[in-house]
Amino acid sequence: MSFENDFYVDGVDVTVLPKISLHDHLDGSLRPETILELAAEAGIAVPATDEESLRRWFAESSNSGSLVEYLKTFDLTCAVMQTAENLTRVARESVVDLAVDGVIYGELRWAPEQHLTQGLTLDEAVEAVQVGIEEGIDEAEELGYSIRIGQLVTAMRHADRSLEIAQLAVRHRTNGVVGFDIAGAELGFPASNHAAAFDFLAHEYFPVTIHAGEADGLGSIESALYDGRALRLGHGVRLAEDIDVNGKDGDATYVTMGMLAHWVKDRGITLETSPTSNLQTGAIAQWGDDITDHPFDLLYQLGFTVTVNTDNRLQSDTTLTRELWLVADAFSYDLADLETFQQNAAASAFLPSEERDELAELISDGFVAAVAAARR
């Protein structure tokens, strides 16, 4: 990534802090140089001919204020991810890039149904990505990093294959797939449209996260929770529409929360926020157009289970380090706050409880070690 800033909080380089990435799209994580190479091999037209120009094109095209426009950039990334070889390469590189950024556990989500134009079956696509993930883990280890990765198999909410994709996810639950998601244009495509898939997943005790509260409001979140039995909300920032700020008195903010907001808060349902992406897609437009306008801090101060994520590293030209630094800079957070966000993510990972506890220990130890190293 091309950043000019050093990302320090309390004198500690955020890059070295152990991190958990819950919301990261595989087809939004490609390296620009990889796109150029794969596109040239396949004869696919690209909007720029060098890495830096292509990087800028993705960021500028994604900064549209509309999720629908934002999603159009994926036509290019998906076009170069239609063979097993290419899927494996993209997954491998994505894992290595996460590891170098300090991520110790990540969940990569992607929609296999969008990668079948050159003859792959759904199962072959999932297997190709898993090969890449395992290769990426090995490559990261050779570079001195330790990382674990799970796949989140995603169905497109505007299509009609969700039950088939849910069955695919469960079929591969012992081969790297840890959860299920629906994604794509949110407005007009509620989770209730996919009731059969969610009924099946509930019967199979298979965890679900659902994109909701990004391009649609409270009704979408309600459907994700009621129809989808979602344990986490992809973005979920428009839950703030159910919170009325009545006034402030010094450092105290007085609010009234609706029943939906109370339910999400009291049940610890995780919000997978992605600050830069939420600005780009207009998800927080009703509150403003700057990171300081993001309702993240309001949700955090009220005790919601908030996490910080990248969504799409390519489209937002970002890393998890940068996203954490952005919220820290915007809301004057310290390392204790950043650790809270990572512990929230660790507790929300689609892993057995013992493995989540291990992540929590790694985070605690890693933050202590980073502070000690910075003081030497």
Rank of each mutant, 00 (worst) to 15 (best):
W110I: 01
I20Q: 09
A169H: 09
L225Y: 03
A373M: 06
A373N: 08
D199P: 02
P190Y: 07
H194R: 12
L299R: 05
A48V: 01
D97G: 09
I35E: 02
S62T: 11
F3K: 12
N86L: 03
L201N: 07
D311H: 09
R376V: 14
A369C: 11
V371C: 06
P207R: 04
T117W: 00
L36H: 07
V46P: 03
F74G: 02
A111S: 14
S29Y: 04
D101N: 10
L351W: 07
V16C: 08
A215I: 11
S2R: 12
V68E: 15
A59R: 14
T121W: 03
T154M: 13
W263M: 11
L143H: 06
H158Q: 14
H262A: 04
E127I: 06
L76V: 06
D199L: 12
L26P: 02
I44R: 06
G236T: 02
A328W: 04
V245Q: 08
T154G: 00
T273V: 15
G247E: 04
V170M: 06
F304Y: 14
A42E: 14
A155T: 11
T273H: 14
N309K: 05
V131W: 01
W263S: 10
A202C: 06
S29V: 00
T281C: 13
T121D: 01
C78S: 08
V306A: 10
A328P: 00
D160S: 14
G282S: 11
V68W: 08
K248I: 12
G217E: 13
I20Y: 03
L163N: 07
V95S: 03
